[in-house]
């Protein structure tokens, strides 16, 4: 057992990889040289190989068509129920979207209608005042004059026009 401890960790690791056929050509050659020269190495390799062989006795399961059919039934049923669940989710979300859009359209229509009613349909007393402001501003003077005939005569009077020229050269 004393001789066994002379093997390094890497050499031990390489013994396992050698048994598993996982070493490079060069590493394989090194191990084979070691095996040819060392009884300790041969013992090490032999015990690892025998240990591995013992694992052949681990239980293995053999399942038949029944398990295949049961599995297929299970996966396809679950898939269908998942799909139907997905459809339900899509339907629910669609319903919610329609509801939200309906509410949005309703609220917008109410806002536009309300604005129209308040601005157009109901008479606004200030609207006429704003429209006729220029007239109303000089209404007192227009009332003093009385009619437009006098203004026409004044406009055609040359004396009056001369007088205006003097006032506004």
């Amino acid at each position: 057992m004393e001789k066994l401890s002379r093997l390094t960790t890497e050499q031990r690791s390489n013994f396992v990889a050698y048994l598993d056929g996982e070493l490079s050509e060069e590493e394989t050659h090194q191990i084979e040289q070691m095996l040819a020269q060392s009884q300790v190495a041969r013992h090490e390799l032999d015990s690892l190989a025998r240990t591995w062989e013992l694992l052949d006795s681990l239980p293995r399961v053999q399942l038949g068509e029944e398990f295949t059919n049961k599995t297929m039934a299970s996966v396809t049923i679950k898939e269908q129920s998942t799909n139907s669940g997905l459809l339900d989710v899509v339907y629910d979300r669609l319903q919610l979207a329609v509801l939200v859009i309906g509410w949005a359209v309703g609220l917008t229509s109410a806002a536009v209608g309300g604005y129209y009613l308040t601005t157009q349909a109901v008479p606004d007393p200030t609207r006429d005042i704003v429209r006729d402001y220029q007239l109303l501003k000089d209404l007192d003077r227009y009332e003093e004059i009385g009619s437009t005939e006098f203004l026409k005569q004044l406009h055609n009077d040359p004396t009056w026009n001369e007088h205006l020229k003097v006032l506004n050269p």
Partner: peptide, 20 residues
């Protein structure tokens, strides 16, 4: 993986050596 398998095989050998 190499290290994992080496340690596993060493452990198994320790446990099973007396049977072979």
């Amino acid at each position: 993986v190499k290290s994992l398998l080496t340690r596993a095989r060493e452990n198994l050998r320790t446990q099973l050596e007396s049977y072979f």
